[in-house]
Nucleic acid binder design. Structure first.
Length: 455
RNA sequence: GCCGCUAUCGUCUAGGGGACUAGGACGCCGGAUUCUCAGUCCGGAAACCGGGGUUCGAAUCCCCGUAGCGGUACCA
């Protein structure tokens, strides 16, 4: 594989809300590309729309990136803070005649188009009044070509583009202008962003050309959709990074899964630690078709990561997620539950009985506590009293003979224990569970169940 | 409307003219692991959007159609 030169990229979210999965994937791809090439990643906040850009939103995005463990080398740079640079560039274009002031209203533009045909972009007439918006002159002839890293050359006829507005009447600049100026002045050499920007790229190219800047390379990622095939939104459950965190996913698993959404390896490797992602990722290999976010697969990936974690790290993650102090009891609980949970959220239901009284699950009781349950529990009790070292192995050895002796299926003996000590019909292995609970508490719970059975 | 992008199992994808009776993964279905659930292992069903070309030969190239998506703001 040929070495890629160090590349300078940027992730430039607009702080209009939480970081969604689509944005997270864009951030990840930028990060992977930067780290893969040994280059740099700049974080720029696209906040020229001051209405929607709140500090709170910005903080949310930084928070999401930190949780995902995607670091950046520069920034966050506020685009709004670069207003003087934008003004300077704007002035240059006005002076060179590449841009002009035009007082046309939206309705007037519409009327112009009706007159000139739908395929023609609006062309205004320069005015001198200072309060008018500034438009960039777009050539009537020729085409602007975006040489996309993912899609190849994409050609756009210049004629179909309006002389678009690059600055408002009050002098503040618009997105497509600010982005072009910033990317150039910040020395960005590769722009990796969502597909929804592809049609805007010719505008940015036109601005760059008018300013005499060399354009960066562009890569437009296919969009992400929800399970219904529609654009991803809050409707789709865990759509934001915050929600993913709250649902108990591991950052490394999320990175792995997100990387696979639109990108894959030739050998179909599915599970990859982040270092491998960094080593193998190339934007050129990203697919062209939109992908659907499938939480089922994320769950599976997450489960695999959870099971492969060293116990201490696993316990730390669980403790953090539960907001509990990490002590030996929790470590022990994690040890018996690690094989069974796919997300951090699923851990507590499995181990809660070690910290709290048995839950009240009437259905489980009704299903299990009948027939020979009383006799079984009595036998279990006597056997447990005799166990010397109360560990899982010893407990197993003590209980193993019971089904045979009682002439009952194992389930008839073990399920009543489970319901007695946890209250539910689902828990980690019964021997491990008893051992983790300890002899005294186990016997107390079995006694309580026996009392209830006899009443 | 106009400009543009995309199209392989339900989902993520491999595939870049013969290696394809189209491979892998998630999910699903069935079986095994004679304590639940989960996990693990084994097996199974499941796709090249449609139509024309090009070619000895097309999932792969071209055209048309269809569908989905994006852009078309003094939003980003």
């Amino acid at each position: 594989m040929p070495e890629d030169p160090p590349t300078r990229l940027r992730f430039a979210p607009s702080p209009t809300g939480a970081l969604h999965i689509g944005g997270a994937r864009t951030a990840l791809y930028n990060w992977l590309a930067a780290r893969h090439s040994g280059g740099e990643l700049v974080l720029r906040i696209e906040d020229t729309d001051r209405e929607r850009s709140t500090g709170e939103n910005v903080e949310q995005i930084l928070d999401a990136l930190r949780w995902l463990e995607l670091d950046w080398d520069e920034g966050p740079v506020s685009q709004a803070s670069r207003a003087d640079r934008h003004a300077e560039a704007l002035k240059r274009l006005l002076e060179s005649g590449a841009a002009y002031r035009d007082s046309a209203t939206a309705k007037e533009v519409e009327a112009w188009k009706a007159e000139h045909g739908a395929g023609s972009g609006y062309r205004g007439t320069p005015v001198t009044e200072p309060g008018a918006a500034v438009r960039l002159r777009v050539p009537d002839e020729g085409e602007t070509v975006v040489d996309d890293l993912i899609r190849g050359p994409v050609r756009f006829p210049n004629r179909s583009y309006d002389d678009f507005v690059i600055a408002r009447g009050d002098g503040s600049v618009l997105y497509n202008f600010a982005v072009a100026v910033d990317d150039a002045e910040m020395g960005i050499d590769e722009v990796v962003r969502g597909d929804d920007h592809l049609s805007n790229t010719p505008k940015q190219l036109l601005v760059l050309a008018a300013l005499g800047h060399e354009p960066p390379r562009y890569a437009h990622l296919p969009l992400l959709h929800g399970p219904d095939g529609k654009k991803l939104s809050k409707r789709h459950g865990a759509a934001s990074v915050q929600e993913l965190r709250e649902s108990g996913y591991l950052p490394a698993a999320v990175r792995n899964y997100l990387a696979l959404l639109g990108w894959g390896t030739a050998d179909d490797t599915t599970l990859m630690p982040t270092e491998e992602l960094v080593r193998r990722f190339r934007v050129e290999d990203v697919g062209k078709a939109a992908a659907i976010f499938d939480e089922k697969k994320l769950r599976w990936v997450n489960g695999r990561f959870m099971r492969e974690l060293p116990l201490e790290e696993y316990a730390e993650a669980v403790a953090r997620h539960l907001g509990r102090e990490l002590d030996d009891r929790l470590r022990g609980a994690c040890a018996i539950a690690q094989e069974k949970a796919q997300t951090l959220d699923e851990v507590w239901p499995l181990i809660g009985f070690l910290f709290e009284p048995p839950v009240d699950d009437e259905k489980a009781w009704a299903k299990v506590m009948k027939d020979g349950a009383l006799a079984a529990l009595e036998a279990v009790r006597s056997a447990l009293v005799e166990v010397e070292a109360f560990d899982a192995g010893a407990v197993e050895k003590a209980l193993e003979p019971l089904p045979g002796r009682l002439d009952a299926k194992p389930g008839r003996v073990y399920q009543p224990i489970r319901v007695a000590i946890t209250g539910t019909a689902v828990s980690p292995g019964i021997f491990e569970s008893l051992a983790a609970l300890g002899r005294d508490e186990s016997l107390a719970r079995i006694d309580a169940a026996l009392a209830r059975l006899r009443s």
